[in-house]
Computed example of a mutant assay.
Amino acid sequence: MLGLPGMRTLMILMLFARLPASAAGMVLTLHVAVGMKRGYGAAGLVGGVATVGIALGAPVMGRVVDRYGLRPMLVLTTVGEAAFWLTARHMSYPVLLACAFAGGFLVLPAMSIGRQAIAALVPVDLRRTAYSLDSVSVELTYMVGPAMAVLLATQVSTGVATIGVGGTVVAAGVALFVVNPRVRAAHEQAHGSERIPRREWLTARMVGVYAVGAGAVFVLAGTDVTMVAALRAADQLDWTGAVVAVICVASAAGGLVHGAVQRSLPQVTLMALLGLLVIPVGLFAGQWWMLALALVPSSAMCAPTVAATGEEVSRLAPPSMRGEATGLQSSAFTLGAATGSPLVGFVVDHSSAAWGFAVAGIGGVLVAGAAWALGAGRTARTPISAGSPS
Rank of each mutant, 00 (worst) to 15 (best):
residue 53 G to P: 06
residue 51 T to V: 10
residue 167 G to Q: 11
residue 142 Y to W: 15
residue 216 A to Y: 04
residue 117 A to T: 06
residue 86 L to K: 03
residue 328 L to M: 15
residue 88 A to E: 03
residue 377 G to Q: 04
residue 78 T to H: 02
residue 205 R to H: 00
residue 75 V to K: 07
residue 111 M to N: 13
residue 316 L to R: 10
residue 251 S to I: 02
residue 212 V to M: 01
residue 115 R to N: 13
residue 56 L to M: 14
residue 97 L to W: 00
residue 227 M to P: 08
residue 227 M to Y: 05
residue 146 P to L: 03
residue 68 Y to R: 15
residue 331 S to G: 12
residue 191 H to A: 08
residue 303 A to K: 03
residue 317 A to E: 11
residue 250 A to S: 10
residue 356 G to V: 07
residue 97 L to H: 00
residue 370 A to Y: 13
residue 234 A to T: 05
residue 154 T to Y: 04
residue 355 W to A: 14
residue 311 E to Y: 09
residue 48 G to V: 06
residue 218 F to L: 10
residue 221 A to I: 01
residue 213 G to D: 01
residue 259 G to V: 04
residue 114 G to L: 07
residue 229 A to Q: 04
residue 32 V to I: 14
residue 375 G to D: 05
residue 12 I to W: 13
residue 216 A to I: 02
residue 205 R to P: 00
residue 233 A to H: 12
residue 278 V to L: 13
residue 105 F to V: 10
residue 106 L to A: 05
residue 30 L to S: 09
residue 346 F to P: 04
residue 370 A to T: 12
residue 291 L to H: 05
residue 383 P to R: 02
residue 384 I to N: 10
residue 324 E to F: 11
residue 89 R to W: 14
residue 103 G to D: 03
residue 282 G to D: 03
residue 28 L to S: 12
residue 355 W to N: 14
residue 250 A to T: 03
residue 128 R to Y: 04
residue 69 G to E: 05
residue 386 A to C: 02
residue 221 A to M: 13
residue 311 E to N: 14
residue 89 R to T: 09
residue 10 L to Y: 00
residue 120 A to H: 09
residue 281 V to P: 07
residue 292 A to F: 09
residue 280 P to E: 02
residue 61 M to Q: 14
residue 294 A to I: 02
residue 71 R to V: 13
residue 304 P to N: 07
residue 389 P to H: 13
residue 278 V to Y: 08
residue 297 P to D: 09
residue 311 E to I: 08
residue 209 V to M: 00
residue 141 T to L: 02
residue 317 A to G: 10
residue 104 G to F: 04
residue 125 D to E: 15
residue 114 G to N: 09
residue 42 A to K: 06
residue 235 D to P: 04
residue 24 A to S: 15
residue 98 A to R: 03
residue 126 L to W: 10
residue 136 V to W: 02
residue 191 H to F: 15
residue 328 L to T: 08
residue 131 Y to H: 15
residue 327 G to Y: 11
residue 113 I to E: 10
residue 23 A to V: 08
residue 317 A to M: 12
residue 143 M to F: 13
residue 295 L to N: 06
residue 277 L to T: 07
residue 188 E to L: 00
residue 238 D to S: 15
residue 262 Q to M: 09
residue 323 G to H: 12
residue 187 H to M: 00
residue 134 D to R: 02
residue 158 T to F: 06
residue 333 F to W: 13
residue 156 V to W: 14
residue 232 R to W: 02
residue 277 L to C: 05
residue 385 S to A: 15
residue 212 V to G: 01
residue 180 N to I: 01
residue 186 A to M: 06
residue 157 S to F: 05
residue 306 V to G: 06
residue 13 L to V: 04
residue 116 Q to I: 09
residue 136 V to M: 02
residue 333 F to I: 11
residue 19 L to P: 10
residue 161 A to N: 09
residue 184 R to D: 01
residue 355 W to I: 07
residue 196 I to L: 01
residue 174 V to L: 15
residue 248 C to R: 12
residue 6 G to C: 00
residue 46 V to K: 10
residue 307 A to D: 11
residue 213 G to P: 01
residue 229 A to V: 04
residue 5 P to V: 04
residue 88 A to Q: 00
residue 53 G to L: 09
residue 110 A to T: 14
residue 342 P to E: 09
residue 286 G to K: 02
residue 364 G to R: 09
residue 141 T to R: 01
